[in-house]
Amino acid sequence: MSIRARRLAASILLAGMACGDGGSGPSPGGAGSVDLVLTTPYTDDGGLLIAVTGAGVTGVSSSGYEISFTSPTDTGVTLLIRGDLKAGAVARLTVPDKGRLGRYRATVLQAAARGPGYQRRDPDGYEILLAAP
């Protein structure tokens, strides 16, 4: 799947989540966790700087990587993840309403390879999706 196709799928996924905001139909509903799922064309990523927009994030964690982040605000939270990154869930957010994920959007701001080069990479090559664990 190309990057463009993956972005389209992500948009559809987020749109589907947004359709659920009205509460009709099946919805997990209530506070809970949501994963940030990474799609990357590389296999030697050493770190990511990720911006998540949207209010109400109450917790940030990662089960496989080191992570630092700014204090969540009404506009969102910025995360720095370090480790031998692989595609898949890289961090977990705690949100007040899992049924309203359309409020959130995740973007890779910077990406860097692992050592010894630590080259900066084009963030347009990455995709971050929000998905239920």
């Binding site: 109450t58 917790g59 964690s61 990662s62 080191e66 630092s68 982040f69 204090s71 977990r92 705690t94």
Partner: peptide
């Protein structure tokens, strides 16, 4: 070195929390 701890980031307009891999998440 690890990423800075939560105490390191306080007062620097970040206020985040750093956890070693596998550490339990902590609500801000």
């Amino acid at each position: 070195l690890p990423l800075p701890s939560s105490m390191d980031l306080r007062g620097l307009a970040t206020g985040g929390v750093a956890r070693r891999p596998g550490g339990a998440p902590r609500a801000h």
